[in-house]
Design a protein around this nucleic acid. Structure first.
Length: 896
RNA sequence: GGGCGCUUAGCUCAGCGGUAGAGCGCCUGUCUUACACACAGGAUGUCGGCGGUUCGAACCCGUCAGCGCCCA
């Protein structure tokens, strides 16, 4: 017997553990079944499950469970990425708490410590995904720093290097002065900062008293200025182009150049050029062959090594001693000192408040410095071409499709990808340097040594590059490295290309783009057929959730409060394509009620002797109620499949919600009650049969989104083992096709609704049982379901007469699909109220008739509209007219 | 500045050429022996404005307005 109350907490852990232990979440490459594959977008190993993960993984799990039930060899690949910067920061923080520092302990000891941390506290998220019910193939779990995946990384790096698609270059990077590493363009967060725009005066060489003014928000970089640029067409500066300015403080001679980069409308129209510290200036510097001295060290302190030799004393303009004193000063302190000095020299024209965008590191949180360094680069533009083409030709399809534009926009303008990071935690770059700096890129130290021997003709000492690769470099390989590549494993052969990648739009650049590039280059085929982009989960007011706002919803707390099924169902039901989700506890309460409803319906059937019966054949069902329910169930199953095929998780959820609650509970079970309470016999057997059959169908249909309550009911009711539901075939259903017998149920439903509405409007006491007189050409539904109508509409045994309302005195009149219903209400009915009710219905019918008449009166409509539409319109007009006639007759009877 | 999206019932959202829908909320009634996390009934919409295409527009096109996001 089912418990009275549905208690998710009591069953979830047990059900999940049983399924995991039974191995039903695992793929089997030996099975002949067609594969269905999703690789999880690898969460960060330092991370914990947030509501965005809950959405992302719920959607993946729904797809995987559904396809698995369809018989596909489903593989949902789990794992995490090593998150170079984040993990290194976590461990460094732990060390700091113990008074230790990574440099002091050395690289090897530090890495040991990181692995220890990973073993102890890494991957909390994988345990949390289990609480969500995610049916990942855990025995196949991978980690980007695994031996196998690391091998793939080395293989890819070496291969791309030999192909000339990876190279070393000295370019500007986004440098994080706190983390002391280059970071990706995508890890740069533009923050609006209220700063100051300073205008500086640079003296013109050979023109005493003449200055050129330049505006800057970072005056400390002026030490590295190597030119002043003006627009070629700007008449104000035409005579200065080709001459020189004297850079204050350092006394350097810098040319005044013409370059269209300078915007005559902006600032003073002249702009200082600091090639080593600004991306735009770097390009200008390249175009004009300017020197590019670096004046900031890795921690963004002033360093003078590259300009020390050229400092020159110029009275009133340049003071080498002052500049020398700046060495080692932190950038903002140096800024202050430089401004004070310039002001003292009369070279600071003005300072204006200025709001501008300042790039910050999204991890470290400090302003970044563009910095000129040697780094490893990947030729993304070349790799992007086939990826763009794959999307253009539809080999990979985005859902919703408009995200393809975002993908194209970024891919078509892709910059060289800086793949080296000045970290210790990560894949160390397989490059070795000879004594003269010659580079050997090989898979192993031994191979590098052999190459060096061949190159130099003798043994030499090699030094390995200390840098590691961007975490995304290994993530980019995820769709094939996790399947065993570069080994040619059965999994790789069977499951690549994968079917779907499910992710948020913010990750199109990170994952989608890079996986596409690497997948196509190394596997010759796209990594996934579909990319499903879902929205962001926001709070109920549409605000982004954040710790600082205090509006975060913890999925684990939600699971505790509402059950994993309710959390999953809510996320699914709200996942409309292309829209963010506004999540509220109220919504979740509503869907928890749905799980409870399912539980209670099952309990009711169990109490009424409904038991699973695999031998029961729907095709043998004869009764109208059974046919009606089977038809609705088939349509619901069909729609569920269709919705999931189209990745319409919202339609899938709401369609089943409506079927279970409205069709199955509100009508079928209510219709079944008189039969279940009645005498034993074939009719009761058939109702029990169809009830168990369709409940079993509903449990299967709902299982992908509500795996826990469905599995529990499946087992407790006796359909089978809870674990076995995971691989029980998913119902296919078929398109709705109305059966004649089933229409009689609809008539009974309509009669009940009409009577209920009349009773309520006329204030008939709920407990009063009214007589019912029925007439009309179509009354079979009323006859067939009289007991149901009596019970649900609270009426006496229907009396079938020639004309329902004739000679019965005052009463209420209504109609149901060709049947006329009359409720004699002598002494009960308020005739004025009934007149008002009928009048209102008449007005509604009249409006309908007017609309349809106008439409049919339009010659264009008859001439051009489809025939079926015209016919339907005519039919509706007749119905409206008949309804008006009936209502008129009823009104006449109770006139006065 | 460039691009994308959104604007439909009080709220959150479906619908995207032929009868305006759902959930929640609201109002009224009900302990009808599965379920008050329930049942029944009800009210509420110039489908953002304007213009166009069409026999017909919430839906297609143009335009304006407001909101949001991404990239400079």
């Amino acid at each position: 017997m089912l418990d009275k109350a549905f208690d998710p907490a009591a069953m979830e852990a047990r059900l999940y553990a049983a399924a995991e232990a039974a191995g039903v979440f695992s793929a089997d490459p030996a099975r002949p079944a067609a594969p269905f594959t999703i690789v999880i977008p690898p969460p960060n190993v330092t991370g914990s499950l947030h509501i965005g993960h809950a959405l992302n993984n719920t959607l993946q799990d729904v797809l995987v469970r559904w396809r698995r039930m369809q018989g596909r060899d489903a593989l949902w690949m789990p794992g995490t990425d090593h998150a170079g910067i984040a993990t290194q920061m976590v461990v460094e923080r732990l060390l700091a708490a113990q008074g230790q520092e990574r440099r002091a302990m050395g690289r090897e000891a530090f890495l040991r410590r990181v692995w220890e941390w990973k073993a102890e506290s890494g991957g909390a998220i994988t345990r949390q995904l289990r609480r969500l019910g995610a049916s990942l193939d855990w025995p196949r779990e991978r980690f980007t720093m695994d031996e196998g995946l690391s091998r793939a990384v080395i293989e890819v790096f070496v291969t791309l290097h030999k192909q000339g698609l990876i190279y070393r270059d000295r370019r500007l990077v986004n440098w994080d002065p706190k983390l002391l590493t280059a970071i990706s363009d995508l890890e740069v967060e533009s923050r609006e900062v209220k700063g100051t725009l300073w205008t500086l005066r640079y003296p013109i060489e050979g023109a005493p008293g003449r200055f050129i003014q330049v505006a800057t928000t970072r005056p400390e970089t002026m030490l590295g200025d190597t030119a002043v640029a003006v627009h070629p067409d700007d008449p104000r500066f035409a005579d200065l182009v080709g001459r020189f300015a004297i850079l204050p403080l350092t006394g350097r001679r810098i040319p005044i150049i013409a370059d269209a980069y300078s915007d005559p409308e902006k600032g003073t129209g002249a702009v200082k050029i600091t090639p080593a510290h600004d991306f735009n200036d770097f390009e200008v510097g390249r175009r004009h062959g300017l020197p590019m001295p670096n004046v900031l060290d890795p921690e963004a302190r002033i360093c003078l090594e590259e300009i020390a030799g050229e400092l020159a004393e110029i009275p009133g303009v340049a003071e080498p001693d002052f500049v020398r004193a700046l060495a080692g000063q932190e950038r903002f302190a140096a800024r202050k000192a430089i401004l004070e000095k310039l002001e003292a020299l009369g070279l600071l024209e003005k300072a204006e408040p200025h709001t501008h965008q300042v790039p910050h590191g999204d991890r470290g949180g400090v302003p970044l410095e563009p910095r000129l360094t040697w780094q490893w680069y990947c030729d993304a533009a070349t790799l992007a071409r086939p990826a763009i083409e794959a999307v253009e030709t539809g080999r990979t399809v985005f859902v919703p499709k408009q995200w393809e534009n975002t993908f194209f926009a970024w891919m078509r303008d892709i910059q060289p990808w800086c793949i080296s990071r000045q970290l210790w935690w990560g894949h160390q770059i397989p490059a070795w340097y000879g004594p003269d700096g010659h580079i050997f890129v090989e898979r192993t130290q031994q191979e590098a040594e052999a190459a060096a021997r061949a190159h130099y003709g003798r043994e030499v000492a090699l030094r390995r590059d200390e840098d590691v690769l961007d975490t995304w470099f290994s993530s980019a390989l995820w769709p094939f490295s996790t399947l065993g590549w570069p080994e040619r494993t059965p999994e790789l052969a069977k499951h690549y290309p994968t079917d779907v990648l499910v992710t948020g739009f913010d990750i199109i650049f990170f994952w989608v783009a890079r996986m596409m590039m690497m997948g196509l280059h190394f596997m010759g085929e796209v990594p996934f057929r579909h990319v499903v982009i879902h929205g962001l989960v926001r709070d109920e007011r549409g605000q982004k959730m954040s710790k600082s706002k205090g509006n975060v919803m913890d999925p684990l707390e939600l699971i505790d409060a509402y059950g994993a099924d309710a959390v999953r169902f809510t996320l699914c039901a709200l996942a409309s394509p292309g829209r963010d989700i506004k999540l509220s506890k109220q919504r979740m309460e509503g869907y928890r009620a749905f799980a409870t409803k399912l539980w209670n319906a099952a309990r009711f059937l169990e109490m009424n002797g409904v038991r699973p019966d695999p031998a029961w054949k729907p095709a043998d069902a004869k009764g109208m109620l059974a046919r009606w329910l089977l038809e609705k169930a088939d349509a619901a199953a069909f729609e569920a499949n269709r919705s999931l095929e189209a990745f319409r998780f919202d339609d899938y959820a709401s369609g089943l919600y409506a079927f279970l609650w409205n069709t199955y509970c509100d009508w079928f079970i209510e219709f079944a009650k008189p039969v279940l309470n009645g005498p034993d016999g074939p009719e009761k057997e058939e109702v029990r049969g169809v009830a168990q059959h369709v409940l079993g169908l509903a449990l299967r249909l709902l299982h992908p989104v509500m795996p826990f309550v469905t599995a529990e009911l499946w087992e407790k009711l006796g359909y089978g083992d809870a674990v076995a539901l995971t691989t029980t075939p998913y119902p296919e259903g078929r398109e709705a096709a109305a059966e004649a017998g089933a229409a009689l149920v609809d008539q009974a439903i309509e009669a009940i609704s009409a009577i209920r509405s009349a009773r309520s409007t006329l204030n008939v006491p709920a407990s009063a049982v009214l007589p019912l007189r029925v007439s009309g050409a179509q009354t079979q539904g009323i006859r067939a379901f009289a007991p149901q109508i009596m019970r649900l509409a609270r009426v006496a045994e229907p009396e079938f007469v020639a004309a329902a309302a004739e000679g019965a005195g005052p009463g209420a009149f209504c109609a149901a699909m060709g049947a006329e219903l009359f409720l004699p209400l002598a002494g009960v009915v308020d005739l004025a109220a009934e007149r008002a009710r009928l009048g209102k219905e008449r007005a509604r019918a009249e409006a309908e008739r007017a609309k349809l008449e106008a439409k049919l009166a339009n010659p264009g409509f008859r001439a051009k509209a489809e025939e079926a539409v015209v016919a339907e319109t005519e039919e509706r007009l007749q119905d409206a007219a008949a309804e008006i006639a009936r209502l008129d007759a009823a009104l006449t009877r109770i006139a006065n």
